[in-house]
Measured scan of single mutants.
Amino acid sequence: QRITLKDYAMRFGQTKTAKDLGVYQSAINKAIHAGRKIFLTINADGSVYAEEVKDGEVKPFPS
């Protein structure tokens, strides 16, 4: 399943989102408010992988 960072954070909370991605909650808040195009893939085992689309390139998040 693929979902935006904002939607994932709204569904699970910023604290869990940060923990799942290995970053601080403040980084999640800042990324959402900056309007960054970050998409999360939720794997069947429950693990989460995030990618950011920037300038036409897709890069892992966090980099």
Rank of each mutant, 00 (worst) to 15 (best):
G35E: 10
T41P: 00
A44H: 09
Y49T: 13
A31W: 13
A9R: 06
Q1R: 08
D45Q: 06
V58K: 08
A18W: 03
T15I: 13
R11P: 00
M10R: 12
E57A: 11
E57Q: 13
F39E: 04
K6I: 10
Q25K: 14
T41Q: 08
Y8F: 05
N43P: 04
G46Q: 06
K19V: 10
L40C: 09
G56N: 10
G46E: 05
K19P: 00
K19W: 09
V53I: 14
I28C: 01
V58Q: 06
T15G: 11
I38W: 01
S26A: 11
E52H: 03
A9H: 05
A9G: 03
P60R: 11
Q1D: 12
K6M: 10
K16Q: 11
G46F: 06
K6A: 14
A34F: 09
K16R: 09
Y24M: 14
S47T: 13
R2N: 06
Y24W: 12
Y49S: 12
E52I: 04
D55F: 08
G46R: 05
K59W: 14
R2K: 13
K37E: 10
Q14Y: 15
K19S: 11
A44Q: 11
V53Q: 09
A31D: 02
Y24P: 15
P62H: 04
T17I: 05
A50S: 04
A50V: 03
D7F: 04
V58S: 10
D7G: 05
Y8I: 01
K6E: 14
F61T: 02
A27Q: 14
Q1V: 15
K6Y: 12
R11L: 14
E57P: 03
V53L: 13
I42T: 06
K6L: 12
E51K: 05
K6N: 08
Y24S: 15
T41M: 12
Y49C: 09
I32N: 02
N43I: 07
S26Y: 11
D20N: 06
L5D: 00
K59R: 13
R11H: 08
K30F: 09
V23S: 05
K59P: 03
S47R: 09
I42F: 08
E57W: 10
M10G: 10
Q14A: 15
E51W: 06
R2Q: 10
L21K: 00
G46M: 06
K37L: 14
E51P: 01
K54F: 14
K19C: 11
R36S: 07
T17R: 01
N43L: 12
G13F: 01
K16S: 04
S47W: 06
F12S: 03
A50E: 00
P62W: 05
G46N: 06
K16N: 05
T4V: 04
S47Q: 08
R2I: 10
P60T: 07
F39L: 06
T15V: 14
D55G: 11
G22I: 03
F39T: 07
K37R: 11
Y49Q: 09
Q14R: 12
V53F: 13
R2T: 10
Q1N: 14
D20E: 07
I32L: 13
Y24H: 15
K59A: 10
A27T: 15
L5R: 00
R11N: 07
T4Y: 05
K6R: 13
P62Q: 05
P62E: 05
D55L: 08
A18H: 02
A31R: 01
I28D: 03
Y49W: 14
D20T: 07
L40A: 03
H33L: 15
Q25L: 11
K37C: 11
D20K: 07
V58N: 08
K16G: 03
L5W: 01
I38Q: 00
K6D: 07
A27H: 11
I42D: 01
R11K: 14
R36P: 01
A34K: 09
G56Q: 07
N43R: 13
D55C: 10
N43A: 11
G22M: 06
G22R: 07
H33D: 13
I32W: 02
P60D: 05
P62L: 05
H33M: 15
G35P: 03
Q14E: 15
Q1K: 10
Q25D: 08
A18E: 03
A44W: 09
A50N: 01
I38V: 08
G56T: 07
D55V: 05
F12E: 05
S26P: 08
A9I: 14
K54I: 15
G35I: 03
F61Q: 02
I28N: 00
K30M: 12
V48H: 03
A27G: 05
I3T: 08
T15Q: 15
G13Q: 01
G35A: 09
T17M: 03
V23T: 13
A44M: 10
Q1M: 14
D7K: 06
D20I: 10
Q14N: 12
G46S: 06
A44Y: 10
R11A: 09
E57T: 12
N43E: 10
E52W: 04
K30E: 15
T4L: 08
K19M: 11
Y49M: 10
F39W: 14
T17N: 01
D45G: 05
E57D: 11
I3A: 05
E57L: 13
E52Q: 04
Q14M: 15
I32P: 00
K54L: 15
K37I: 12
A9F: 09
A34N: 10
G13D: 02
V48C: 06
M10K: 13
D7R: 06
I42E: 04
A50K: 01
D20V: 11
V23A: 06
